[in-house]
Simulated assay, not measured.
Amino acid sequence: MTTTVNPVLRVAPASPAVAAAHFRASLALHTDVSDVAAALEAGGDPGFVLLDSRSAEAWDQGHVPGAVHLPAAHVPERASALLDPSVPVVTYCWGPGCDGAARAALALAELGHRVKEMLGGFEYWVREGFAFETVRGRERHVADALTAPLGADACGC
């Protein structure tokens, strides 16, 4: 008799304590576009600086309003002139397939900054229907129903 191994449970789930520690650590290092948008739209000081770690060409193509532009490769030599080390930094790059935000976050952490990475990057900012700036001005696309609820302000998570 052949037994079929459940691919989900081939490796047993972590204990609740291990899982809690993992997800607590993950949330200390990551945020998402909806939470960033809510913090920025609330008005006043959001308590962090949003940093776009992409190239000048990418920045011109579109970026989150209010973000600071500092390509990941230039963080070591330019961060001290642009960022206050006492203010947390949230980094973003193109999207889930790009690790530029992680490279920028690493460089900032090595310089003594507290950092988080915005999951989804600029791609999900646009796909979730948030406004962005380009060299032509402010733009906004209709939210993608696969990334955000249509007609609602938040996903409810």
Rank of each mutant, 00 (worst) to 15 (best):
S53G: 09
R24L: 09
S53F: 02
V75N: 07
R127V: 02
A17W: 03
T31H: 06
V126H: 00
G120A: 01
R127D: 10
A145P: 14
V135W: 02
G112D: 08
V89F: 07
L111N: 10
A25F: 05
A19M: 10
H141T: 02
S86D: 14
A67K: 05
Q61V: 04
G66I: 04
V18K: 10
L70K: 14
S55P: 08
R24S: 13
A56F: 08
D35C: 01
A19D: 15
S34Y: 01
A148V: 00
A145W: 06
G47D: 12
W125F: 01
R103L: 15
V87Y: 04
K116V: 02
K116C: 03
A12G: 11
P71S: 06
S86V: 09
V115K: 04
H30W: 08
A25T: 13
F132L: 00
S15Q: 08
G120P: 00
A12R: 14
L108N: 07
V36A: 03
L29A: 12
H113P: 07
P16G: 13
V115C: 07
G47T: 11
A145V: 09
G121W: 01
D60M: 12
T91F: 07
V64D: 04
E133R: 12
V75Y: 11
V68R: 15
C98A: 11
C98T: 04
L40R: 12
G137N: 05
S86K: 15
W59H: 14
D52N: 14
L27I: 07
A42L: 11
A17N: 09
E123Y: 04
S53P: 03
T2E: 12
Q61K: 11
G43A: 10
P13F: 07
A42I: 08
P85S: 12
A14C: 07
P7C: 07
T3Q: 11
N6L: 09
A17C: 04
D45H: 06
L82F: 05
A25N: 11
H63V: 03
P7G: 08
L50D: 07
G44E: 01
A148K: 02
L70F: 13
G97H: 12
S26M: 10
